[in-house]
Design a protein around this nucleic acid. Structure first.
Lengths: 353, 353
DNA sequence: CTGAAAGCGCTAACAA
DNA sequence: TTGTTAGCGCTTTCAG
């Protein structure tokens, strides 16, 4: 349609391909650059005629305003940076998706950087991003635990930690409400009539693990279950699910009728191990996971009920807040966003209670 | 260390936080801005004394050159865009990691955009990125199949398709060598003495599936196996692995002694189904997967041997080529990068043949 | 060896 | 209603 925007003969434009500038449009339309600017940005009073003429000319030349120049002038780059302290993991992704999706709608682009737990790389990235005059900065890590990195809260740009924490207690921080998520998962089991609910989870040096344990205990109490509780900590692995089942079911004693798991991988191990023992899920034992990771929840038989941290929503919320911060509002401290429960067959009640 | 770079009293700087400009440095050091520029960029002849003075002053003020201004001047933004036509999936991630990691070393930042199979969103993203004057563009999709989107090869900036294809046969394109990968996987099985190797894979509307099938057949031929071949197509799911095993093992007839799978999820289903039938892996049947996805390969028992597409390496190679293209070199057509084989227990030979 | 000034592309305030 | 111009922060000649 448009002819390849080849530069009008004369001086070679700065940018490689020679994109037409506002100057070119002005010349082609036979008006001044001020007029072009007004016509294109719907400002000032202009004869409709001129406005149309300019618009058409601009379209014909394939003119696209140079955001760099605009940014330089306005002092806003319409750009933010996101730095993942860990590789782009399974948790970072949906956050990124939510963030980017929201910001794209606001005309903001996102620089994505990966620091892989290397403070030096991280420093470099920050340096680069500040050089590019990003309007805001988002830090993410794999697990929602304290970041090892030194303080970076006074970078001069609005900064937000998402699924990550800062050393600075005043830093704005978005986290899932692990405690509430766990509580809801366990309450669901209790409401279905389960009386002996075990909790098989990760290492308790993770804050998330501690919070989920607290939620688990709260739910038991809240449900009037005071004669049974069982907490097992181990690695975040399927094999740990297997081992935990061995501990729970192979040694006589009172067996649980439900297992609430710290993540979906453990839950998968638990379900597989139960099947090997011909213990019916959810008939004999109900299972609930955490993360709602489709790869796992769809693969277990039966499909896995799981707590969802709504990471995409968290990413979007991060975008909303970052924009607010850029506009001058100020956020501080930790905000926890609610988890929800994705109910499937493994807990014995697909449709409500 | 550095005092928060508060603007020297006087006019308020453009960018929110009021980062010091080269002007501020010049004033503070009592020299001209030309001198500052030279001192900071090691250009022209300058008295060592002045150079040091300027440097110190700049450091003291926390001066960081404004890349936007620099970009405007040089006509290079030191920025590239990456657009994923699908959500940020498991395949996009390592590519992104490789690309970003390499480009960060070159001082280039990467805009990450997600178009989620929505052509309109994609158009918007391209528009935005071109407005930001990215020096290059990378397109990615989830599966290495033809993109539905209309031609976008004449955008005026170097464009590269990675793990994705363009309609334009001249477009530069980086893909894994599916055929070679499959061939190597099957050859490995043959070398271990397997004679009846089945291939359980995805739907054959995927080009990758067809290529892998071709590689499979090549390997059989190359190994002198001409009395057995078995091709099964189904969805990319674990459950399909289960079903395929039922087809292969529950109906009498000649049973395979190895299964080469189209991806790791299918492989996992196969291994689980075999175990349920008390068929030993790798004793009775060897299994090889495709993707080398750690979540799967580490979770199967025994651990899964799998073909690795080296996506991170592909991302890095994309970076290398994009840089070359930006410098004026030109690439066209499809380049296929070799796959490797990650050998584990499921094929019966961990340490070499 | 250092300073002054033009210009990258755009916007906004001011003139005409 | 339209044109002119002064910057935004930086690099790069060209004078001094």
């Amino acid at each position: 349609m448009n002819p390849p925007p080849s530069r009008p003969p004369g001086k070679t434009g700065a940018f490689g391909s020679g994109a037409p500038t506002i100057h070119d449009v002005a010349k082609a339309a036979g008006v001044s650059i001020g007029t072009v600017s007004k016509a294109l940005n719907d400002q000032g009073r202009l004869r409709e005629e001129t406005r149309v003429l300019v618009r058409e000319t601009a379209a014909r030349l394939g003119f696209r305003p140079n955001d760099l120049a605009q940014a330089l002038h306005r002092g806003k780059s319409l750009t933010v940076g996101m730095i993942s302290s860990d590789s782009f993991g399974r948790f970072t992704m949906p956050i990124m998706e939510g963030l980017e999706g929201y910001l794209a709608g606001e005309g903001i682009s996102v620089f994505m950087c990966n620091a892989t737990d290397d403070p030096e790389r991280e420093r470099l990235h920050i340096e680069q991003l500040l050089g590019k005059r990003v309007d805001g900065l988002v830090f993410t890590s794999r697990r929602a635990d304290r970041r090892p990195t030194a303080d970076m809260t006074h970078l001069g740009v609005p900064t937000l930690f998402v699924y990550a924490q800062s050393h600075d207690p005043m830093a704005a921080c978005l986290l899932p409400d692990d405690q509430q998520g766990a509580r809801d998962g366990v309450l669901h089991l209790a409401r279905l009539g389960r009386k002996r609910i075990a909790h098989v989870t990760g290492p308790d040096r993770f804050e998330a693990v501690v919070l989920r344990q607290t939620g688990y205990l709260q739910a038991l109490q809240q449900s009037g279950i005071d004669n049974y509780h069982m907490l097992l900590n181990g690695p975040w692995l399927e094999t740990w699910g297997h081992d935990a089942v061995a501990q729970l079911f192979d040694h006589g004693g009172e067996r649980p009728d439900a297992v609430f798991c710290g993540n979906d991988q453990i839950a998968r191990g638990v379900i597989d191990a139960l099947r090997e023992r011909r213990i019916a899920v959810p008939g004999d034992v109900a299972v609930v996971g955490f993360d709602n990771w489709d790869v796992m929840t769809m693969a277990t038989r039966p499909a896995l009920t799981s707590v969802d941290m709504n990471l995409r929503g968290m990413g979007k919320e991060a975008g909303v807040r970052l924009m607010a911060m850029i506009r001058g509002e100020t956020f501080t401290g930790i905000t926890r966003l609610p988890c929800s429960l994705a109910v499937r067959q493994s807990c014995g009640a697909t449709s409500a209670t």
